[in-house]
Design a binder for these strands. Structure first.
Lengths: 185, 185
DNA sequence: AGAAACATGTAATCGGTTACATGATTAT
DNA sequence: ATAATCATGTAACCGATTACATGTTTCT
């Protein structure tokens, strides 16, 4: 229940005032910390809705030539609404991974492609770890540090498991042979 | 791109013929292995679409009193389409966690509630590990075993990190005190 | 007797993405 | 010169969920 775009905006605004554009950048920059994504197409309407409901206030600053900057800040009601979310129960975690879905059918993937996919995933995870480590000093609260290191720990575990067990998928097949047909139930 | 309901149905059907109802059950039962969820409202239309596109065939078996069982099986075209998905690139992983989002703002959560949330998350993860371990023998391919043990490894890492670092969030606050106000940017 | 599992399907709704529309400023 | 960043917003679309609609059989 907690993780809709509006609620996340409330959370971000609890860290300080921001424009829609800045909020979008935080969604991107801290993506490993927050595990959420959102586009302008959802952020701007969400902010408008929050304003209509009195949870945020808008102060307009003239952008020179650019569209005016609309700086949002939490109202007392908005602060209260967010506090209440924090007192509730989080919804279930969801991990969606095309990569893992494909590995489920590893025997249908040609050996070379399979190895490439695993190599790329490891590189991707290493990149995330570097990114998190590099951004760590930016963390302003224990919560932010905790979540960052939690994300890193999970990435490290994933890499370790891939390295230690990839042979179980790879050694079955002669290097570049097409996957053999599987029996049907 | 790979992870829409239709593609997952194709994958499940590559393991053997099944009805929509059975596919739904697999989505639920093997949820830790597949990391995907889908409801009847998306499965039945997806199956109809696949049939229209000639990727699956339907054979109807009279259900006695119940609606007829419609048993789907992959056609040659469907097998080929799925093989092609397996040759492609997986989309990015997405991990969405209300729990981690809340921890980001741990300083807004009363100490007792915070501890309860962490305890519950650990219990939840332990449950998943048990579930995976228990279902392991059902795995029919190396891919299924690999993905199951990968999921387990990640859950174990998450528990370890929570246990080893929860004090960083908890010790800041005197047990049941309300979270102190935070400075704004 | 009552609940759970079996079995399929449709309609309303929803949250979100992508593309569109616009245009100045700053860094390379 | 050209690309990237700044800056806001709308409209079309999409995939999926939830609730609805229906009804039998089997387990407890």
């Amino acid at each position: 229940m907690a993780l809709d775009v509006g609620t996340v905006c409330l959370g971000i605004l609890s860290l300080g005032d921001a424009t829609g554009y800045e909020i979008k950048k935080m969604f991107e920059d801290d993506k490993m910390q927050i595990f959420v994504e959102a586009s302008f197409g959802s952020i701007y309407p969400a902010l408008a809705r929050l304003a209509k409901d009195g949870l945020v206030e808008v102060r307009t600053e003239s952008g020179n030539g650019r569209p005016d900057r609309k700086i949002y800040s939490l109202t007392a009601a908005g602060k209260k609404a967010f506090d209440e979310v924090m007192l509730g129960q989080p919804g279930p975690d969801r991990f969606r991974s095309d990569f893992l879905f494909m590995l489920l059918f590893a025997d249908l993937i040609p050996g070379a492609h399979l190895s490439a996919l695993i190599d790329e995933k490891i590189a991707d995870l290493e990149g995330r770890i570097d990114y998190i480590t590099q951004r760590m000093p930016d963390a302003k609260t224990p919560g932010q540090r905790f979540v960052a290191s939690h994300g890193r720990a999970i990435c490290e575990a994933a890499i370790r498991h891939l390295r230690d067990n990839r042979h179980l998928l790879e050694e079955t097949l002669p290097a570049d042979a097409p996957a053999p047909a599987r029996k049907r139930a």
